[in-house]
C-alpha cells in the first residue's frame, strides 16, 4: 500500500534522506530503528505531508497514488496517520472539539455523514477506555499541560478514533514507563488487521517486544542500511548502533 523509492530529501541544503527504499503491504508491521539524527522523523514528516523539505529525487506512492502531491488533510482522509514524536499543544481548542472535527472531516472524505454530538461522545468514550486515558482530558485543550505519557497515549487514542489504514508511529515509546508502554502497545495491537499497515519508528528494541514487527529496517544517515526480521532488533539491542556503523565502514 506504501512504496517509497529512492527518496532523497534535504532542508536548507542539508541532505537528510539519502535514497530510502521501503515497501509496506497491508497487514504488515515494519519497524525502523536508527540512531538519533538519522532521519527517522524526517521520513515520517514527509510521509504525513509537512512542508519545508526539498525532495530532489525519488517517489512515494500510497494506494497507487502519488503521495507527495497530496495535502496533509487529503492523506489523512485517505487513511494515513502519523503519531507525532512531539505532539503539538494547541491552547484554546478542546480535545473533544478537535477530535470531532477530525473524525468528521475524515468521514466526509469517505462519503460518510457527520457523527452528531451524542453519537460521537459514545464512540469516543469506548475508545478512550482502551487507552486508559482520564476522560477529563477530553475537555482540556489539545495536549496542553498533558504529561509526556498522556500526550503519547492521546496520539494513539486519536489513531483509534480515526481508524486509519496506514499508521506511522514516531518514537511513541519514548518517555513512556513500562505500564504506559503496555497500554499503548495494546492499543496499537488492537488495531492490527490484515488491511492495515504499520510503520513503527523507534530508537529502542523494547517497544518491539510488545508490538512485534514482521520486518525491521535500520536507518543510518538517511539510508536503510540493513533489513531483516525481528531478530535484527535483538542484535542491534545487544551490539548497539556502533556495530552497524562499523560493519558499514568495513564494507567500504
Amino acid at each position: 500500500m506504501l512504496q517509497i523509492q529512492n527518496l532523497h530529501a534535504s532542508v536548507e541544503d542539508k541532505t537528510i534522506l539519502n535514497g530510502v527504499n521501503l515497501t509496506i503491504n497491508p497487514g504488515e508491521v515494519h519497524a525502523i530503528m536508527g540512531p538519533n539524527g538519522s532521519g527517522k522523523s524526517t521520513l515520517a514528516s514527509i510521509l504525513a505531508g509537512r512542508d519545508g523539505y526539498d525532495i530532489s529525487e525519488g517517489s512515494a506512492t500510497y494506494l497507487g497514488e502519488d503521495l507527495l502531491e497530496m495535502d496533509p488533510e487529503v492523506r489523512a482522509a485517505k487513511g494515513l496517520f502519523l503519531a507525532f514524536q512531539y505532539p503539538v499543544e494547541i491552547p484554546g481548542v478542546s480535545n473533544t472539539y478537535f477530535l470531532r472535527a477530525a473524525v468528521n472531516a475524515v468521514r466526509k472524505q469517505r462519503g460518510e455523514s457527520d457523527m452528531d454530538a451524542m453519537e460521537f461522545m459514545k464512540f469516543i468514550r469506548e475508545k478512550i477506555k482502551i487507552l486508559d486515558l482520564d476522560p477529563s482530558l477530553l475537555n482540556r485543550s489539545v495536549n496542553e499541560g498533558f504529561s509526556g505519557g498522556e500526550k503519547k497515549r492521546n496520539e494513539i487514542f486519536q489513531m483509534a478514533a480515526l481508524e486509519p489504514k496506514m499508521c506511522i508511529l514516531d518514537e511513541t515509546d519514548s518517555g513512556l514507563d513500562i505500564d504506559a508502554l503496555k497500554v499503548v502497545s495494546d492499543g496499537v495491537n488492537a488495531l492490527r488487521s490484515p488491511e492495515r499497515g504499520f510503520l513503527v519508528i523507534t530508537h529502542y528494541q523494547r517497544l518491539l517486544n510488545y508490538i512485534v514487527p514482521d520486518y525491521v529496517h535500520v536507518l543510518v544517515d538517511g539510508r536503510i542500511v540493513r533489513s531483516g526480521d525481528k531478530t535484527l532488533a535483538y542484535e542491534l539491542e545487544e551490539k548497539g548502533y556502533g556495530w552497524i556503523e562499523e560493519s558499514l565502514a568495513g564494507a567500504k
Binding site: D51, V88, I90, A105
Partner: peptide, 18 residues
C-alpha cells in the same frame, strides 16, 4: 499547530480558522 490539525484531516481553511 497548523500541520498537526491538517495531519488529522482538518482542511487548511478550517484549521486556520480554528
Amino acid at each position: 499547530a497548523l500541520f498537526y490539525l491538517r495531519s488529522r484531516g482538518i482542511p487548511e481553511m478550517d484549521a486556520r480558522g480554528l
